[in-house]
């Protein structure tokens, strides 16, 4: 198989699986959130309400396709599919197993962060094109937050890159398989870098407690205010996909990807991704929203300096190890 065919086939498979998991995670989230609040959650459609999300999707497709009178028609229509495409594109370089990956780029982490950073654009475009003050305010907050948290995100992702001395994701995983997972080794920097990476991923995906771009109590629904039907559905799906892919990336670069005790393989990667994904839901339904200034203070005053120190520490670690050898 040529790399192109290999990439195309696995790309389609991985994208389909990711979208399916993201869609059904909405059902899981609703059930889980309900149990946290000692409710039942969806129970009526299908066994245990499992088909609720299918019913919701059918409902959304039937909704009128609303284009606000003063909206920019092209940008307004372009934003939701772009959000999904940019988010899914990042999944191309994530290795789920030694063979289960679409493209094994030697600049995998760079590609991942670059494409992941693009997600800010559809959000901004959606807010701008809606021509609605709440949507615009939400978009401005999303951009401010996205740019701010991009920096500690990139720096914390640099820690595994420095430790593995490679940007290729499969190299990072094989180095972890040979030594230890980077979250445990070197103890300290790896763990803190993971926490920073995880926090920044939440902020990038605008998930609670970093959801001021769509703070319902202030901004109606933020950038999605003017969207209805499947366009709204796509924007929502982009958010869930983003958190799912961020979990997969964290599992790959900090938790050793497919490497695991007993039998290494795809199942370990899937398990680690789902556990991190579950953590995101758990955090979401336990915490309250940050205030704008608290959000910025956390990023610029704590996460950014800390992640810089971590990059230097890991570089020092690699240097000392090279000197010893």
């Amino acid at each position: 198989m040529t790399p192109l065919v290999h990439g195309a086939v696995w790309g389609v498979v991985i994208a389909t699986v990711l979208v399916t998991v993201a869609v059904f995670s909405i059902w899981f989230e609703r059930k889980f959130a309900a149990r946290m609040q000692t409710r039942y959650g969806p129970t009526l459609v299908g066994p245990a309400g499992l088909l609720q999300i299918v019913a919701d999707a059918l409902k959304m497709m039937q909704k009128e396709d609303i284009l606000p009178q003063k909206a920019d028609p092209m940008l307004f229509r372009l934003a939701p599919p772009c959000a999904v495409i940019f988010t899914l594109a990042a999944a191309a370089v994530i290795p789920f197993d030694e063979d289960v990956l679409a493209a094994d780029l030697d600049i995998g982490v760079l590609f991942l962060l670059a494409v992941g950073g693009l997600v800010v654009f559809p959000v901004w475009v959606a807010g701008w094109a809606s021509n609605n003050k709440y949507a615009l305010l939400g978009a401005m907050r999303a951009v401010a937050q996205g740019i701010a948290y991009e920096i500690p995100l990139v720096l914390s992702a640099m820690v595994p890159v420095v430790l593995a001395q490679s940007m290729r994701l499969s190299d990072i995983i094989s180095v972890q398989a040979e030594t230890h997972w980077f979250v445990f080794w070197p103890l300290g920097p790896g763990l803190i870098a993971f926490v920073i990476f995880f926090i920044c991923s939440l902020a990038e995906a605008n998930r609670i407690p970093f959801d001021i771009p769509e703070a319902e109590s202030e901004l109606v629904a933020g950038v999605t205010t003017e969207y209805a039907g499947m366009r709204f559905g796509l924007l929502q799906m982009a958010e869930y996909l983003h958190t799912l892919i961020a979990s997969a990336v964290a599992a790959a670069i900090f938790f050793g990807g497919w490497d695991g005790p007993f039998a290494s393989g795809l199942h370990w990667m899937v398990l680690k991704t789902l556990v991190l994904f579950f953590m995101i839901f758990w955090i979401r339904w336990s915490l309250v929203r940050f205030r704008s200034d608290q959000l910025m203070a956390l990023c610029w005053k704590y996460l950014l300096p800390l992640s810089l120190v971590l990059v230097m520490l890991s570089a020092l670690f690699v240097y000392v190890r090279a000197m010893d050898a």
Binding site: R35, T38, Y40, W282
Partner: peptide, 21 residues
């Protein structure tokens, strides 16, 4: 506080729902 909040929510998950259908 985050850990405490998450402990509270996880405790609730294992409580029977109070909803009356």
């Amino acid at each position: 506080d985050t850990a405490r909040a998450m402990a509270v929510t996880m405790r609730n998950v294992f409580r029977p729902p109070t909803t009356v259908q």
